[in-house]
């Protein structure tokens, strides 16, 4: 991104419409605000977002939108958010409803705020369903107990309940992964998540894969499956990962060969 979008000649004009701020995490001991990335709830590099002057994150720009045009599109959405916020604050109920949908879209609303806002809006049946669809996606903001409690308070149909269960699985995967990492850290090591994810997979705990397949989970399952001579798990993981490599024929072919070899090895072991 630094060599492309951020070096684009158009970035100068765009940056004049905002206050551009770059934060460089340095790991220099004692450096002021070196942990700002984490402080803002982010976990990886690069991250690019819009904030209000209070430093609240309004919108994190997706990886696919890290272009000058993407920045401009994102800014228009954030400007719309600010306009709707002002109107809603002035008592415009239609604006408040549009604001709710937009905040779901921008991802700058908590589960608690969304339910409170929705409750104040007198949503009709179709809107309530739409709202619940989006609330389900916010479940991973919560810890497991809170998520289950909140879930019980939602009137969901069967399809929504099934979808919610997949997001609950995401929380379980996240918590299991976190526990494994903490345990390894206590022992001065880095966690090997392959057996952790593989065990979850064998227990039927699968990620929601929304909005896209969980790359880390499925990569781990695939590698562990190879070690465990488990071609079915390998194949299941590769089905999820294949779209990431759709344009890479040689890697796809390599995976096919590895799967064939694994199937042959499993068959030989049975004999």
């Amino acid at each position: 991104m630094e060599g492309r979008a951020l070096s684009d000649d158009g970035i100068v004009a765009f940056n004049a419409t905002v206050v551009p701020f770059v934060h460089i995490t340095t790991r220099i001991p004692g450096k002021k605000r070196d942990g700002l990335l984490k402080e803002k709830g982010f976990t990886g590099f690069p991250t690019i977002c819009f904030m209000n002057p209070q430093g609240d994150v309004l919108y994190k720009i997706a990886g696919t939108d890290r272009t000058l045009e993407g920045f401009q599109r994102a800014k228009r959405r954030v400007d719309e958010f600010l306009t709707l916020s002002r109107k809603a604050a002035a008592g415009d109920r239609d604006a408040a409803k549009r604001l709710l949908w937009l905040r779901f879209e921008l991802g700058n609303i908590t589960f608690a705020d969304a339910t409170a806002l929705a409750a104040s809006l007198d949503l009709n049946e179709a809107e309530t369903r739409r709202c619940n669809d989006r609330l389900i996606e916010l479940l991973p903001q919560l810890d497991m107990d809170e998520a289950r409690k909140r879930l019980a308070g939602l009137a969901l149909d069967a399809a929504q309940q099934q979808r919610a269960a997949r997001f609950i699985a995401d929380i379980r995967i996240r918590d299991t992964c976190r526990a494994a990492r903490e345990s390894a850290r206590e022992n001065g090591q880095r966690a090997d998540l392959r057996p952790v994810f593989y065990r979850l997979f064998k227990d039927g705990v699968l990620p929601s894969d929304e909005p896209r397949a969980d790359f880390l989970y499925w990569s781990a399952v695939m590698q562990a499956a190879e070690g465990a001579i488990d071609p079915e798990a390998f194949a299941a993981a590769w089905r999820k990962l294949a779209p990431f490599y759709a344009k890479n024929e040689s890697y796809t072919e390599l995976m096919r060969k590895r799967l064939s070899a694994l199937r042959a090895k499993a068959a030989a072991e049975k004999r």
């Binding site: 630094e2 951020l6 970035i11 100068v12 940056n15 004049a16 419409t17 905002v18 206050v19 551009p20 701020f21 770059v22 934060h23 460089i24 995490t25 340095t26 790991r27 605000r33 700002l36 990335l37 803002k40 982010f42 590099f45 690069p46 991250t47 690019i48 977002c49 819009f50 904030m51 209000n52 002057p53 209070q54 430093g55 309004l58 920045f71 800014k75 954030v78």
Partner: peptide, 27 residues
């Protein structure tokens, strides 16, 4: 891109100019 590197200054500028902070995190 005239990027500021001080977070407090960026927020203060945004408040003064009525603009958004466009924040890029790298390492």
């Amino acid at each position: 891109g005239a990027w500021l590197t001080d977070f407090d200054e960026a927020c203060a500028q945004a408040k003064k100019q009525g603009k958004l902070v466009f924040a890029y995190f790298t390492r």
